[in-house]
Simulated scan of single mutants.
Amino acid sequence: MQCDYFDAGRCRSCTLMGTAYSGQLADKQARCVAALGPGPRWAEPFASRPAGFRNKAKLVVGGHRGAPTVGILDRGGRGVDLRHCGLYEDGLAEVVEQVPALVGELGLVPYDVPRRSGELKHVLITHSPAGELMVRFVLRSPGQLGRIRRGLPALRDRWPTARVVSVNLQPAHAAVLEGPEEIVLTEDQELPMVVNDVRLRLRARSFFQTNTAVAAGLYRQAREWIDEVDPPSLWDLYCGVGGFALHALQRPDASARDVLGVEVSPEAVESARAAAADLPGASRFVAGDVIAHLQTSPSPDLVVVNPPRRGIGTDLAAWLEESGVEHVLYSSCNVDSLAGDLARMPSLVPVRARLFDMFPQTPHLEVLTLLHRAG
């Protein structure tokens, strides 16, 4: 992939830009094998499109009223306009190009980091496979909320597929993407994301993988490995909006599997419950601390974990090691923390593994590993 912004030194976020994609993929595979060892049976890496793969735009707003920039900030806190970035998928790319014009039409004042003045900090846009949009404006205060509310008809005239529009309030002068308060301005609260045969539902603060095509491949592979084991009961810990759990509901013989999802975010749990209502099979989703839940319930046959970059940590690793759970499916975005967790669970041995390249042009990756209890 060639990028004018990278070549001009305006953006260095894609640290592997200019490296042949085949080389990027080979290097990531080598890192994964080094972390997990040669023991598991490695499937062929699941490649991405090198460009045009992002379903989400996280745009820092800079510049000034009437001449906003959207992209990133330079080291001095000034806006760098990247509206023509080549990473956005078709449909989203065209929307991003129009964001500065919309910001101007709404009369929104970009937040000036060096001066700590202004209001609009970020515009966050998610694009679904059906071409629908979730558009979020991150403001320093409610001062310009009325402008966005009154401008909603104009926004929908420009983007008729905008299903969810919201304002997030982030008052802190800090490098934080969003704040705790979300004000949804549309009747619809959720953006449907159809992945394989599952209709996930994203709310404003829900997490979903940035690369829809590779996420679909990840869930298909997870379902295949789960079906090979065919556990009657399954827990999906750190379940988010339920991607793994909902893909695992049906057993190969079409009977229902007992599936439980646990997630700290009540909003994500509500999304998972709503999506589960569209599917056959028995599932439960509970909001709460994963570790606290372990103390009150009998162990399932298989556990899925999809933790943040820090990994599952000492407590959950110790519980899994001692629990008697026969199978663990571990999806990791950090092979180093994954290796550390595996060292804490010597009884659970990696038998299958596959790299999923969610983030071309960067060193980031996702690796899925199936663990079986030794002996």
Rank of each mutant, 00 (worst) to 15 (best):
R156Y: 05
S117T: 12
V328R: 04
R352P: 00
Y330H: 05
A254E: 10
D74N: 15
P110M: 13
G118E: 02
C11H: 10
K56R: 14
A276M: 01
V103H: 03
H247L: 09
R10Q: 14
R149L: 03
R147A: 15
A101H: 12
A254Q: 13
A175Y: 07
L329T: 01
L370Q: 02
Q29G: 11
H247E: 07
L370E: 00
T19E: 14
E97S: 09
L139Q: 06
F208I: 14
P363N: 11
R310W: 03
D197Y: 04
N306W: 00
C333S: 07
P231V: 10
G86E: 08
V304N: 03
M358K: 09
R163E: 04
H247M: 04
D4P: 11
P280G: 08
Q24R: 02
V349C: 01
A268H: 01
P160L: 05
A215I: 01
D230M: 02
M1P: 13
L348D: 01
W235M: 01
A43E: 15
Y21H: 11
C32P: 05
F208V: 13
A216H: 00
L320I: 11
G86T: 01
V290Q: 08
A353V: 10
L102Q: 11
G288Q: 06
A254R: 12
H127D: 02
C85N: 06
C11Y: 10
L169M: 07
A248K: 11
D188S: 14
R49L: 14
L139A: 06
A277Q: 15
R158C: 08
G261V: 05
A256G: 14
Y21W: 09
P142A: 11
H173F: 15
Q24W: 00
L342S: 11
V259M: 05
R10E: 13
A256F: 07
A274N: 05
S337P: 08
P142Q: 08
S166C: 12
M1L: 10
R352M: 08
D227L: 10
L355I: 13
A43Y: 04
L108H: 06
P142T: 05
A67P: 02
L368E: 10
A47D: 14
G18V: 09
D90E: 10
G217N: 08
V195A: 01
A318H: 03
G324P: 02
P100Y: 14
E224Q: 13
P350C: 13
T362R: 08
A154Y: 05
L218T: 02
G311F: 04
P160T: 10
N55L: 00
V113S: 04
E326C: 04
P346M: 03
E190D: 07
E97K: 15
S255F: 06
C239F: 02
V165T: 14
E228Q: 14
R205E: 12
P308C: 09
